[in-house]
Design a binder for these strands. Sequence first.
DNA 1: AACATAAAAGACACAAAATGTCTACCCACA
DNA 2: TGTGGGTAGACATTTTGTGTCTTTTATGTT
Lengths: 90, 90
Amino acid sequence: MTKAEIVAKIAEKTGVEKGAAQAVVESFMDIVKTSIKADEPVYLRGFGSFIKKTRKAKKGRNIKAGESIIIPEHSIPAFKPAKTFLGELK
Amino acid sequence: MTKAEIVAKIAEKTGVEKGAAQAVVESFMDIVKTSIKADEPVYLRGFGSFIKKTRKAKKGRNIKAGESIIIPEHSIPAFKPAKTFLGELK
DNA sequence: AACATAAAAGACACAAAATGTCTACCCACA
DNA sequence: TGTGGGTAGACATTTTGTGTCTTTTATGTT
């Protein structure tokens, strides 16, 4: 399912005009990104939370060259699904 | 940041009425959940993808009782952040 | 506007699964 | 038309997830 498809479904379900729905969805993505970058979690009850997490340095490898490589410590956006979501999925 | 807060920001940025924005966001969450449950990935270019993944069975432990427990194989909703998102975060 | 309800985070130990690295090609979304 | 993202492949180490209870906080309802 792509962005265009989900926007179409949202418009259909909510009655909101397609253009407006797309603007809302894109704004949503943008705000979540901005918020995570600012290290502020986004909490969506019944769905899940977006949180900035830190990954410790780790050994990876350059597949092409076959050599060991050190992946430095870095931050990632993590999604923690809500318990209700997990329950519906089991 | 909570749902109410993000809805307010979206309304402010897009000009879409707050009530409509909230309906869109909630519909968005609902559709993503439904799609994942149907094992259909949701691709959001520039943001990330939601995919249903399978976790293999694993040993955990009941902290309270201190006993080993087997966590059976199960499905989870995974979020894979877009490369651009990761780049902005590093 | 305030209250009641329900949902989520945190914390504990530990074993095994999952991750993430690079490169390049190809397809499909925007 | 341009570019973002999936895919594959090897391997060491980090991360994960379990149950339960408490406390905090959002949600929506009277």
